[in-house]
């Protein structure tokens, strides 16, 4: 798993690549939470388009960050325009868990207001 964090105004862009499972979920959430508190951004957007594996640990990471971000009055976005065939699998898992009842889908960063 690799995490790339970029800030654009009030938005924190979180790109996670590689394999997201329980083994790396702890580290992932610690690093993201630290960055949210350090930069005091309002909104975050997750880019999972280049994951090569994800299981229910990904649901936990998303919903946990959603809770933090909405507590601070921000919005959590999720990029839905992945080109890999694996990304369809990621979407299937997240739809199944109902995460998009909370997290906003977006097609591009523009939609997140940057």
């Amino acid at each position: 798993m690799e995490l790339e964090m970029k800030r654009k105004g009030n938005l924190l862009i979180l790109k996670v690549t590689g394999e997201l499972d329980h083994h790396c979920a702890d580290e992932l959430r610690r690093r993201i939470d630290r960055e949210i508190l350090r930069t005091l951004v309002k909104d975050v957007v997750f880019d999972f388009t280049e994951l090569t594996f994800m299981d229910s640990a990904g649901i936990g990471v998303l919903m946990g960050r959603y809770r933090t971000v909405s507590h601070l009055g921000g919005t959590t976005w999720f990029l839905t325009e992945g080109k890999t065939s694996y990304f369809k699998h990621v979407m299937k898992i997240l739809e199944m868990a109902g995460v998009f009842n909370y997290i906003h889908k977006c097609k591009s960063l523009k939609e997140c207001g940057v």
Partner: peptide, 21 residues
Amino acid sequence: TLEEISDLRTAVSEAVTNCII
């Protein structure tokens, strides 16, 4: 197919993670 392999990888990961946690 790759999709069938993805399904299996995910299911196995869930089962093994449950034993650990």
